[in-house]
Write a protein that binds this DNA or RNA. Structure first.
Length: 275
DNA sequence: GAGAGCCTGGCG
DNA sequence: CGCCAGGCTCTC
């Protein structure tokens, strides 16, 4: 479900509600959410811990706990995290449930059950595939078109697949890859090695602007992404190409085309993004 | 570098 | 019924 802007939105939403809250008890209802730890152990480790801070790295949420412990959550496609302020009994629909003092609860709900939770110290969490070799965060000031150029200039793969590769740059997913390529006027099938330094600069600027705006509008809500129980983001109203197959381009009124690249649907304007 | 696989639900 | 879905991992 969520890409960088949605994960950042969730982080900003959870932090003020959960900071300095002490975990009374945790219940994991679905072992699949905890690939590296028996669920009973996870509940034991979390019990009594306090949430000190919530950080984001790429699409991962890092809950910093006392005693040097961390809980890392990846929502994948359909994961949702929300706070319930009344004491509600755990429900079979939840993959995990964390009960705090004062009756607050955090629940993790995940229809497709791809989402994952990892618990451990910093050392242990570096074994998580994906976290260990995660690329730079594009919202960081020191990430520039030059960094992008360096990563892709020898790659014979479509730029669309390279943007989805989390070791090259972290946090971009299918929506924002398509939107960024449209903004930069780059066809999604252009090979990484074909892109000039100037195009990389342009693309990096577009990525930064789009992610920034998407965060300001609290992300894109299509189906599963929700802030809390029922609030939505509103960036979907500003999408230029994603999900607009057959509609007309807002720049040139040409048709928006859909193409399968690396197994993912890619939306682009063949006029604004020539091959 | 491409494709299957992991899952469930909604839509045509 | 088949196809599609804001992700990622593993295998060939």
């Amino acid at each position: 479900m969520p890409e960088l802007p949605e994960v950042e939105t969730v982080r900003r939403h959870l932090l003020p509600q959960l900071a300095n809250r002490r975990i009374e008890k945790a219940r994991f209802l679905d072992q699949r959410a905890l690939p590296f730890m028996p669920k009973e152990d996870a509940a034991d480790v979390l019990s009594g811990r306090t949430i000190l801070d919530i950080q984001r790295v790429g699409k991962y949420l890092l809950f910093r706990l006392d005693e040097q412990m961390l809980m890392v959550i990846h929502l994948r496609m359909t994961g949702r995290l929300y706070v319930l302020t009344r004491r509600t009994p755990p429900d079979a629909r939840y993959s995990a449930w964390i009960q705090f003092d004062h009756g607050t609860g955090l629940c993790f709900q995940d229809t497709r059950r791809f989402g994952t939770i990892y618990i451990g110290d910093r050392q242990q969490l570096m074994n998580i595939p994906g976290l260990a070799n995660l690329g730079p965060d594009p919202t960081n000031d020191d990430w520039t078109g030059q960094c992008l150029l360096r990563q892709i200039q020898k790659r014979r793969a479509p730029i669309k697949s390279l943007l989805l590769n989390q070791t090259i740059v972290a946090g971009i997913g299918n929506i924002y890859a398509d939107e960024s390529l449209f903004c930069a006027g780059i066809h999604p099938l252009r090979m990484g090695m074909e892109l000039t330094a100037k195009e990389c600069d342009q693309l990096a600027r577009c990525i930064k602007n789009i992610l920034h705006d998407a965060i300001a509008f609290e992300g894109t809500t299509f189906r599963d992404f929700r802030l809390g129980y029922d609030q939505s983001g509103s960036f979907q109203e500003r999408l230029q190409v994603y999900g607009r197959t057959g509609e007309s381009c807002r720049q040139c009124s040409g048709p928006i085309t859909k193409l399968k690249i690396a197994g993912r649907s890619s939306h682009y304007c063949s006029v604004c993004q020539p091959k």
